[in-house]
Design a protein around this nucleic acid. Structure first.
Lengths: 153, 153
DNA sequence: GTTTGACCTCAACTGTGGTTGAGCTGGTGA
DNA sequence: TCACCAGCTCAACCACAGTTGAGGTCAAAC
C-alpha cells in the first residue's frame, strides 16, 4: 500500500475516515467538488484538508442542500488549505438561512392546508391551495370551477 | 371535436380546467392514478370527477408529497364517484401530519446547526451534525478524528 | 375532399445523486 | 513469482417526475 505522508491520504484512508464510499468520492471529483493528485500509478492522493470539504458535503447531504449549492459554497473556499473557522461560520449561516426558509414555506403550507381542511372546495378558480399565484383567475370565461358534488356554485 | 356530455371531458378540456399538460396526464394514467374511457377512435374521455383526483395530485405536488403516497391515498378512494368532503378531510389531515413531521425534522436540524456554528469542529467522531447516529463512535482505534487546523487532538 | 388542430403511442431524454459491475492495473506480503 | 487486496476507468443502471419528439390517427371545419 502507498505509505502516505501525514497530510496525504489514499482513497482507502479517506473512505475509512469519512465513511464515504469510493463511488461517491469519484462522483464528487467528477463534479469538481473535491480534488486529488495522483501517484505515478494513477492512484488518487488526497490532501488531508480535503477531509474538511467532504465533511461539508456530508453536512449538506443531511440538510438536503443540493450539490449545486455546495459547489457554489466551495467556489468561495480556498483549495490549497483547509477552510478556517470563519469559513465554516459563513457556510453554516448560509445553510441555516436555507433551513429557515424551508421551514417558513412548510409553515405557510400548513396554514393553507389547515384552512382548506374545513373547506375542501378544491376549486381551480378559488382554492389557494390549487392556485397559489392566482394564475387561473381571470383567464377568460368558461366553467373553470370544479363543482361541489351536490351544490351548484 | 368530440362533443362530450356534461360529465365526460376530453383531455383538452381537462387540460384547460386543471392546467395539467397532456404528458403529465398520460403519465398519471400509466401510474394508475387516474383513469379514462376511450371513444371508438381511442381518444380519452375522462369522468368529470376525475378532475377531483387531479386536484389532489396538484395539491400533493405543492406539498412535495410523492406520487407513491398519492397512490396509497387514492387506493382508499372511490373510483366511480368524486371523493366526498370527508374523504378530503382524511387526506388533508394525513398530508398535514407529513408537513408537521417535515417541519419538526427541519427544526431539529436548525437546532443542531445553530449549536455547530460556534463549534465548527466537524469531527467525524464527535460532531453530531456529521455523525447523528453515533455510527462511527467506538468503531475501533485509529485516527478517525478530523484535526483542527492548528491544534493536535 | 382537404386542411387543420386535437389526439394517439412509443421511445428516448432531462436532472439529481449517486451505485453496480466488468475488466484492467498497482502495490505488497509470503 | 504468485496471490490478493486496493484502486483505476468506463458504461450502464436506479428512482423520481415527468418532457420531448417522431410518426401516425381522429374529428371537425371549410
Amino acid at each position: 500500500m502507498y505509505a502516505s505522508p501525514d497530510d496525504h491520504l489514499t482513497i482507502g484512508e479517506v473512505i475509512r475516515r469519512t465513511g464515504m464510499p469510493a463511488s461517491a468520492l469519484h462522483f464528487y471529483e467528477r463534479k469538481g467538488l473535491i480534488f486529488s493528485e495522483r501517484t505515478s500509478g494513477n492512484q488518487r492522493i488526497f490532501s488531508r484538508h480535503m477531509l474538511r470539504r467532504i465533511s461539508l458535503i456530508i453536512v449538506a447531504k443531511r440538510l438536503h442542500i443540493p450539490l449545486s449549492d455546495v459547489a457554489e459554497v466551495f467556489a468561495g473556499l480556498p483549495t490549497d488549505r483547509a477552510p478556517t473557522h470563519k469559513d465554516w461560520q459563513r457556510v453554516s449561516r448560509r445553510w441555516k438561512k436555507q433551513l429557515e426558509e424551508r421551514r417558513r414555506v412548510i409553515e405557510s403550507l400548513e396554514r393553507e392546508l389547515t384552512g382548506c381542511i374545513g373547506c375542501g372546495c378544491l376549486s381551480m378558480k378559488a382554492c389557494l391551495l390549487l392556485n397559489p399565484d392566482d394564475t387561473l383567475r381571470g383567464h377568460g370565461p368558461g366553467p373553470v370551477r370544479i363543482q361541489q358534488p351536490s351544490a351548484t356554485p
